[in-house]
Simulated scan of single mutants.
Amino acid sequence: MSTLHALTVIDAPLPYVERLETRPLAQVDLVVIHCTELPDLATAREYGERVLYDSGTGNSGHYYIDRDGTVLRYVPEDRSAHHVRGWNPRAIGIELVNTGRYPHWLDSRHQAMAEPYPDAQVDALVALLNRLAGDLPGLRHVAGHEDLDRDRVPASDDPAVLVQRKLDPGPQFPWDRVLAAVPLPRLPL
């Protein structure tokens, strides 16, 4: 298992990072675990660099962890990244590279998320969560994206069928293993 000392974080700021809203670190009390639902880290980076808002920013997590355990920071903790509706000002977003439902995210026939999370990726996540818990005194909870965004939307293949908009990190995510190794409980909902 990774240790705090073994964790290396590569700073790789997004081009628009200076346009993201600043926030006091004391208000950060939540980490949200996501999966990219994309095939690889390069595609996730391309998606994160897309400008989607009038502010000149886009959707991105703070940290990305590749399947081999490589950890990159796209957005510093003192900036609000756009990763989960309604929770961004108080949350750190961690994206795990995983295909999820890619490329048929909302197709009712493709809602299974079958890719497991490799040990190296989970070990890096645990090390990062422990580091964040030590660095951010207000940090109190961890949640999955699926816990916070429960909206159901019309399926892309059949608008009469509703599917959950966000399912990540999904059924393959080892919640028990992660929660046993970090000082952060899962956010009660």
Score class of each variant (00 low, 15 high):
L106R: 10
N88P: 10
D149V: 08
S156L: 04
V122S: 01
R19A: 15
A133V: 05
V32E: 02
G138H: 08
S2C: 02
R23I: 01
D123C: 06
V31S: 02
L52K: 11
L4H: 05
E18N: 14
D78C: 13
A180E: 14
V182T: 03
D107M: 07
V32Y: 04
N98R: 11
T43A: 15
R50H: 05
R131L: 12
R177I: 05
L14E: 03
A155V: 06
L72N: 01
R186W: 07
L52N: 12
R90I: 12
L38R: 15
P188Y: 09
D107G: 06
D107T: 07
V126C: 06
T36C: 05
V97C: 09
S80G: 06
Q172R: 15
V71C: 11
K166E: 10
G61N: 08
K166L: 12
H145G: 11
V153K: 00
W87F: 15
V163I: 08
D149N: 14
Y64W: 12
L96E: 06
H141S: 05
D119H: 10
F173T: 01
V17A: 13
P89N: 11
L167D: 02
L179P: 05
D149E: 14
V153R: 00
Q121T: 07
G86Q: 10
G170Q: 06
S108H: 15
L72P: 00
D135R: 13
H83W: 07
S55Q: 15
R186Q: 13
G100D: 02
R19F: 13
P159N: 10
A181M: 05
Q27Y: 09
P159R: 14
D123W: 03
L14A: 09
Q164M: 03
E46G: 13
L72A: 14
E49I: 10
E37I: 00
T36V: 01
P103V: 11
V126L: 04
I10V: 15
L25K: 02
L139A: 06
L136P: 06
D157Q: 08
Y74C: 03
T43W: 00
R67E: 13
I33C: 05
D54S: 13
Y16N: 10
C35A: 14
N88H: 14
P15F: 02
V182F: 04
A127F: 06
H141D: 05
V182M: 03
R165W: 10
Y74Q: 04
L72D: 04
L136D: 07
D29T: 13
K166Y: 12
P116E: 09
V163K: 08
L132M: 11
D68L: 07
A114V: 15
P13H: 09
G58I: 11
P185F: 06
E115W: 06
Y47G: 00
S55P: 02
L179R: 07
G61Y: 00
P188W: 08
M1L: 12
P171Q: 13
A6F: 02
Y102H: 14
G69D: 04
A114R: 13
S108L: 01
G56H: 09
R85E: 13
L52A: 14
P188M: 05
A112I: 09
V126Q: 05
R85P: 02
Y64K: 02
Q121D: 05
W105Y: 12
P103T: 10
L25G: 05
P13E: 02
L162H: 12
G134A: 14
R109W: 01
A181I: 01
L4D: 14
T8L: 15
D11G: 01
R90Q: 11
